[in-house]
Amino acid sequence: MEANVRSALARDVALPEPVASRSAEPPRGSFGWFVRSRWLGVLFTLALLALWQGVAVSGLVDSALLPPVTTILARFAPAVARGDLIGSLGESLGRMAIGYGAAAIVGITLGILMGRLRVVWALLEPVLELLRPVPIPAFIPLLILFLGVQSPLKIAVVFIGALFPILLSTYAGVRALPPTLRATAVTFRLTWWQTIREIVVPAAAPAMFVGLRTSLAIALIVEVVAEMIAGTGGIGYYVLQAEEALRVVDMYVGIFTLAVVGYALNFGFLAIERVAIPWHAGGAHRSASE
């Protein structure tokens, strides 16, 4: 399970775009332009789906296990019309939002306090280092004892899973405050609270966003895992139930939905990041021309 979480994490780290070559950009619409653009990847994805379709239709693989893509897509309309797909998804996202939101508030607050107050760091560091390596799903049986199998369980699991990346990257960002920036706050005689609000938080914001984005992917993963282990509803339960009832096409519908939702969450997050920390998204890599 931990391996799953790890690989999902690795997947979430976007590959940096290769540095543009010094030679002139190939003209838009040309073959040279196309193989450098995102459309190459889009086309490749479509080609993989076409391959899948061909394999499924030709009977090379049992189509009961691997239904044609068209069959899966055709099932979306009735699944949406029945309401259970959207309902399950909404249930999962609602719980995720609560757990993730709480983790963001607690993680950022504790991360800042640990970074600025030595006593808080000394108090919490051993506990955090003990809890952090435990795979999140290992907490689920324990939490079931206290919280049952309903929503509080899943919210707690998402909270724990999302907390550590947010807390640790906030802490790292606060610790990485340049000494000159700290000295600037001193020479302008900022109070402790002014220093936090006007210097520490904006300076550590890019690091916080790294943690928030990592945790967003983890939140979706552990929500689905929790539903599969202790399911009463939600999109993870929907997938598991479909598989157990041999409604294979519905299972694929659930998986497709998760892929699209995961992509959309990350896409939305990056859009927010561009607005919230424009100096980081746009400027940090640009060098000033002397």
């Binding site: 000494p179 920036l181 005689r189 006007e198 904006p202 914001a205 920390i277 100096w279």
Partner: peptide, 28 residues
């Protein structure tokens, strides 16, 4: 008393415009 650092790039606030950076000085 105010202080000007050698390392201006680490002393100015990168998330603020020139005007906002100078206003920071006026406010504090």
């Amino acid at each position: 008393t105010r202080y000007v650092f050698q390392d201006y790039s680490q002393s100015l606030l990168p998330w603020q415009t020139v005007e906002q950076n100078v206003r920071f000085g006026a406010v504090h």
